[in-house]
Amino acid sequence: MIRVEGIHKWFDDFHVLQGITEHITPGEVVVVCGPSGSGKSTFIRCINRLEDVQEGKIFVEGKDVYSSDVDINQLRADVGMVFQQFNLYPHITVLKNVSLAPIKVKKMSKIEAEEIALALLDKVGIYDQAHKYPAELSGGQQQRVAIARGLAMQPKIMLFDEPTSALDPEMINEVLKSMIDLAKDGMTMIVVTHEMGFAREVAKRIFFMDYGKILEKGTPEHFFKNPQHERTKLFLREIL
């Protein structure tokens, strides 16, 4: 599904990703955690080519993400993404936020796209907010709109970059619930998060990143009970 082969990335002379090789299978939910600045965001942003890499390759469903003849828009349509800061479009309604890409990229009719959008909004529990503007919604609601927007293209993979970090504590659970539902539906997901409860419940594997490398990885069991690496232990002590 996703094959990452020895990627290295530099921001000028800062070596942010220092050789990552991974294989993520269909339906797998992977949680990525690690200290701030360790390269987690950069790593998942490489998967839909929001960032370039200088070495190595990434294949999504067999397609070479960095090859010059890949249809990057098509590829991105298959990979939904949810950001820490929601990044909804403030000038259009929630419904239009969700239906924009299906209409413009898939050339779906407006009626069909809005039908799908409403079904997704219903799924994340904000059907009744469809005609509001993003600024009129709470943070938790906005992030659920962002999830619906990510799902609207019927992607095969969803990437989440700290989707609950910008939320007030009382709104975190409503967003996690939508993500757990999605995981249970069999979506392939890579989730950067420090919500270890979420990791325990749905992650098949947890990656611990530090200094641009995946230092440790394993099932939640292994990860929480028997962390091997000193830095993982330190990190878990701080976070749990």
């Binding site: 839909n48 929001l50 828009n73 098509q74 991105r76 349509a77 990979v79 939904g80 993404m81 950001f83 800061q85 990044n87 909804l88 479009y89 403030p90 000038h91 259009i92 924009l100 890409a101 413009k104 990229v105 927007r149 990510g150 609207a152 293209m153």
Partner: peptide, 26 residues
């Protein structure tokens, strides 16, 4: 914010589409 362009490109919109429907109207 550049995240607006990023978020719209991430959904599969081309650069010109992202400009036409997301960046320029704002």
């Amino acid at each position: 914010p550049k995240e607006q362009l990023e978020a719209s490109r991430a959904t599969g919109l081309s650069f010109v589409q992202a400009y036409a429907y997301v960046v320029l109207p704002q």
